[in-house]
Simulated scan of single mutants.
Amino acid sequence: MPLNDLQKRLVADNATDFTGLNALFVNTTLKPGNGAPSHTQDLVDDSIAIMKGCGIETLCLRAADFRIAFGVSPDMREEGAEIDDWPEKIWPKVREADILVIGSPIWLGEESSICRVIIERLYAHSGQRNEKGQYVYYGKVGGTIITGNEDGIKHVAKTVLYSLQHIGYAIPPQADCGWIGEAGPGPSYGDETEDGRRAGYDSVFTRRNLTFMTFNLMHMARMLRQSGGLPDYGNQTTEWD
């Protein structure tokens, strides 16, 4: 949905310097980029618009456009996979991003199968270390955006955010947002309804939560950058080797 007047004003009046920070959005829709429009992407684009307007460098990848092998090793070709785009095409962008936002549709009450693959591949690097001897995701910030036409936003967000914090991402307050329609068949987010409106675009709750999530991600990423990341006392893996 296009940003409304309040969101545009918050971006225009923003006085916080977020320059130098970058965000990676990974849309785990089952649809490749050359297929049908993604309802999840429709909502992801609003968060991207806010970040860009505040000076954050953003990149969005649609996971279905890549051949990402399943597994929990950094390079699944070493485990027998014939093709794996993760090591060269995805991981370098994850490694460099200050902010990671995973978008997922809901299928049968759960995150998409591709979302699970992304989480598993992130986990594959969780034992690696940063320059301070901490786990590699320390100092980075994570969030999630969920869409569907059945109940399950909080359930999916719980799974994604737990996974991100478990491997080292910092999760700020209100780090998730989403939209769902009525139970049963019906329009998904952004679909045109019989009266010509777009489903979900009039949801103040969704618009508010997306705005809170986006600014909270940016604020926490900036605080971590300014403080040199998470303090390294008591959490260095080298102490336990």
Rank of each mutant, 00 (worst) to 15 (best):
W179K: 01
K154V: 10
A23I: 14
T29K: 08
S112E: 04
P87C: 11
I50H: 12
W107K: 13
C54S: 03
L100Q: 07
K52D: 15
G168I: 03
W240H: 14
E110Y: 13
E110W: 13
D13P: 00
P185K: 12
G190F: 08
D17I: 09
G109T: 01
H219E: 14
V94C: 00
E131Y: 07
R208A: 09
I50A: 13
G80E: 04
R222E: 08
L108A: 10
D195L: 07
P172L: 12
V156H: 05
V72W: 00
S163F: 08
I167S: 04
N34C: 00
D98H: 14
K93I: 04
N4V: 11
S38H: 05
D42L: 13
G184K: 04
I106P: 06
Y138M: 12
R95G: 00
L122D: 06
A12H: 08
S73M: 07
P187V: 04
G152H: 09
V117I: 07
I171G: 11
F66N: 02
Q7H: 06
N27E: 08
D45W: 09
K8F: 00
V26T: 02
P32D: 12
D46E: 06
W107D: 05
I171P: 11
F212K: 11
V11R: 08
R95P: 01
L230V: 15
I145H: 05
E78T: 13
M1H: 12
I119M: 09
S203F: 08
L10T: 03
S47L: 05
T40N: 11
R95L: 06
L10C: 06
P185W: 13
N27R: 02
I180T: 14
I119V: 11
D45G: 10
N34H: 11
E57C: 09
P185T: 10
A64E: 09
V160I: 15
P74D: 02
V160M: 15
E78W: 02
K154A: 13
N149R: 10
K154E: 15
